[in-house]
């Protein structure tokens, strides 16, 4: 009755709220942990020591190179038709403006198609995108490509409506990408409210002028580490079940939800198994990734280093979509593997979380999944998740200890059983 023992300990026993309390201590102490920042460096040091103190096996740091971008001071002030200071967040890897800023007229568009149609109007302007929110994966392309598309038609900067289904005047940052051969123009996200307002103003034929100042700067790549800790398998130690979350975050709020929760329920999964004195047949490997937010930078270098051993990976797991109350497990794998995972999830009947859905995924594990390794991720209330995603609202206040207990229990049961079954999951 291992599953019951894990659930009992995590949800009703002495380990209750432990993942929440551990997370709160770190993010209250350190705050958010941007790639290349001192905060991230300190957090890695603290976590490295904490995992050793937790008596896990083979705790070590694997060096990687990661991007180093700094936001600096930034501001956007509407000068016409009236003075209005706008809340903005520069987008990751954006260039800065000259010290005096960029002051230009605004062209408001609602889609890339509209931008192409009105390309002749864009020269020398600040393009404001007021794109409708469909869902995150569809709409995020505006944040990622907005600057490049605007630069192609001669714009001097771009301001992107935050990619979120709900807003209380909260900008949501995130990575964006430049393209070789296209001018690199400054780009920032603005609030849904300001994007809507400027759209209304423009539709009345009102001229809008904005002064944008951004000190953003890209520095040479810097050294960081993925953190690894294990419970070594007792029968097939070279075979692995990988349990993970990322330790870096954007420089907003506390980086508690994205992805402190995922990192800490992953640690909690191993702690629960250690507390119960369980030792699976295969190695349970916890990895806390670095520089996920810049596009899975740390995890890709882990893949490069470890892919020679890919046939020994039974399952890769990442929690990077919130640790609110889980509604099921997302899974990618063969029909046989899916049938086995349904059996594993049935062990969570006491928590009434037994669904196995499709789309097991994670920025840091997708490369393994694409190479054929079965992959799993937690699914919870994504609508709520994107309320706070990449915004100053990403703090401990949105986290719920009881929900984290349940998420950790699901993570521990799934990872332990798959690690202890006689056979690896079929490909």
């Amino acid at each position: 009755d291992v599953a019951k023992a894990i659930i009992q300990l995590a949800v009703y026993g002495n380990a209750q709220n432990r993942s929440y309390d551990r997370l709160a201590l770190l993010v209250d102490t350190i705050g958010p942990r941007l790639s290349g920042s001192k905060n991230l460096e300190m957090a890695i040091g603290i976590m490295h020591q904490s995992l050793k103190d937790n008596d896990l096996d083979n705790v070590h740091l694997e060096p990687v190179k990661i991007p180093h971008w700094e936001r600096g001071e930034e501001s956007a002030v509407m000068l016409k038709p009236r003075i209005h200071t706008m809340a903005i967040l520069g987008l990751g890897s954006s260039t800065g403006t000259p010290p005096e800023g960029i002051t230009a007229e605004v062209l408001v568009v609602h889609s890339f198609d509209e931008l192409k149609i009105r390309a002749s109007e864009a020269k020398g302007k600040i393009v404001v995108y007021n794109q409708a929110y469909v869902n995150y994966s569809t709409t995020v392309k505006y944040r990622i490509q907005g600057a490049v598309e605007a630069a192609k038609v001669g714009a001097v900067a771009s301001l992107i409506r935050s990619v979120t289904p709900f807003s209380i005047y909260s900008p949501h940052t995130g990575i964006q990408k430049y393209e070789d051969g296209v001018p690199k123009i400054p780009t920032a996200c603005i609030t849904v409210e300001d994007a809507n307002m400027m759209s209304r103003m423009a539709s009345r034929g009102v001229k809008i002028v904005i002064q944008l100042k951004m000190e953003a700067k890209n520095y040479p790549d810097t050294e960081s580490f993925n953190i690894v800790a294990e419970i070594t398998g007792i029968k097939y130690p070279e075979q692995i079940v990988l349990v993970s979350g990322h330790l870096d975050s954007w420089d907003v709020g506390q980086g508690a939800m994205d992805d402190g929760g995922g990192a800490f329920i992953s640690w909690e999964a191993l702690s629960l198994i250690r507390d119960l004195g369980l030792r699976p047949k295969r190695t349970l490997r916890l990895v806390l990734w670095t520089a996920e937010e810049q596009g899975g930078i740390g995890s890709f270098q882990y893949y490069q280093l470890h892919k020679v051993n890919i046939s020994n990976y039974s399952l890769v797991m990442e929690s990077d979509a919130g640790t609110f109350l889980p509604t099921g497990l997302q899974f990618t794998g063969s029909p046989k593997a899916r049938a086995i995972m349904k059996e594993v999830m049935s062990l969570l009947q006491p928590l009434n979380i037994t669904q196995v859905l499709s789309h097991g995924q994670g920025e840091d594990i997708n490369v393994w999944i694409q190479a054929g390794v079965p992959g799993a991720s937690l699914i919870d209330n994504l609508y709520k998740y994107f309320f706070f995603h990449h915004s100053h609202g990403d703090t401990m206040t949105v986290m719920d200890p009881k929900q984290m207990n349940v998420a950790a229990a699901v993570w521990a049961v799934v990872s332990y059983v798959v690690a202890d079954m006689e056979e690896m999951l079929p490909r």
């Binding site: 009755d1 059983v417 079954m421 006689e422 056979e423």
Partner: peptide, 25 residues
């Protein structure tokens, strides 16, 4: 060594695997 790899066929029937997993509950 590992009993099952992607290039090998499982040694066990699904019912056996079901029973194995049930023992964890």
């Amino acid at each position: 060594k590992a009993i099952y790899r992607h290039d090998m066929v499982s040694q066990r029937t699904f019912q056996e695997i079901q029973k194995e997993i049930a023992r964890y509950g």
